[in-house]
């Protein structure tokens, strides 16, 4: 055995390691840069595998983006909600990103309310139907009813009945937003879980044109806009849109709505679906003549 070679190799490598280690130790003191302590804290919470699923260059970039406010607490896709909660705690939950959300489908036209213009016999998928001349439904903005959202939902929270009416089970919905991505007509919106007032139509047509295609369409009359005390509801592109940052859930718009498009969600813990949509008593009926 060549002992001198082993000695040389051992000492050479150890010496190199020690020298490089000392250089790095000195350099880390000499070139020390103060960083926001929150960056270090957030970095410690992130998984640290630099997978890049967030679209940023590694976990450190993600941590910096969170601290600078360029990314939300939910930046880490790999870490999921647990990491998001921890990041939110470090950031003091001041970004408002931790508000739980639920899915809402902005269409309530079932088979009897919204007529068909053709019989679609293609692949049973909303996205396929949308490509094939927009499917069989007469309303070009409404739910096609082929259940893409129900199939993609990991919690099985979306159900369809024979009438084609969709229900989101708020007890099961975990707010992942997959259904909102999959809907070819963009009908599904993630709304704050506390919201109770919903404008349930996205028809860009107004007046007679909208009501001919669907009995429960938003006709764009703007009555809701006028009665809203906080300017949270606006008619844009022919349908009412509620800004949940401003909405106080007072329900005045639902009372004013002539087509019952705007409805109130009444939460009911006993209900297997977590509650149901109701139409408030209209003011005209309540007014003394």
């Amino acid at each position: 055995m060549n002992w001198s070679l082993i000695w040389k190799a051992g000492i050479g490598l150890a010496g190199l390691g020690i020298v490089l280690g000392i250089i790095l130790a000195i350099a880390s003191k000499r070139f020390h840069v103060d960083v926001d302590p929150r960056v270090t804290e957030v970095l410690a919470v992130l998984p640290g595998s630099n997978c890049g699923a967030c679209g940023l260059a590694g976990c450190e970039a993600a941590a910096e983006a969170v601290v600078q406010g360029k990314a939300t607490a939910k930046v880490c896709k790999a870490g999921g909600p647990e990491v998001a909660v921890k990041v939110g705690e470090i950031m003091g939950l001041d970004m408002g990103e931790a508000v739980p959300v639920k899915a809402h489908i902005h269409c309530r036209g079932g088979k009897s309310l919204s007529p068909l213009r053709a019989v679609y016999q293609g692949v049973s998928s909303c996205r396929a139907a949308e490509i094939a001349m927009g499917g069989g439904k007469a309303c070009p903005f409404g739910c096609l009813g082929l259940q893409d959202c129900a199939l993609v939902c990991p919690a099985n929270a979306i159900t369809f009945d024979e009438e084609g009416i969709r229900r989101v089970n708020v007890k099961k919905c975990n707010g992942c937003g997959l259904c909102a991505d999959v809907c070819p007509r963009g009908l599904i919106e993630m709304v704050p879980a506390a919201a109770t007032v919903f404008a349930r139509c996205k028809s860009r047509y107004t007046g007679k044109r909208a009501s001919n295609l669907c009995k429960v369409a938003c006709i764009g009359c703007k009555k809701c806009e006028k009665v809203c005390p906080v300017e949270a509801i606006r008619v844009e592109n022919g349908f009412a849109v509620i800004d949940y940052d401003k909405c106080t859930n007072c329900g005045d718009c639902a009372v004013a709505c002539p087509t019952d498009t705007i409805q109130i969600w009444v939460a009911n813990p006993a209900d297997p679906e977590g509650g149901e949509f109701t139409v408030p008593e209209k003011e005209k009926a309540a007014e003394p003549v």
Partner: peptide, 23 residues
């Protein structure tokens, strides 16, 4: 010994360069 030596050198060098650039 060239693989451990080079890896050692490259890793330390990258760390060092990173610190210098950061500063």
């Amino acid at each position: 010994l060239y693989i451990p030596t080079f890896i050692l050198i490259i890793a330390s060098l990258v760390q060092f360069v990173e610190m210098v650039i950061k500063k």
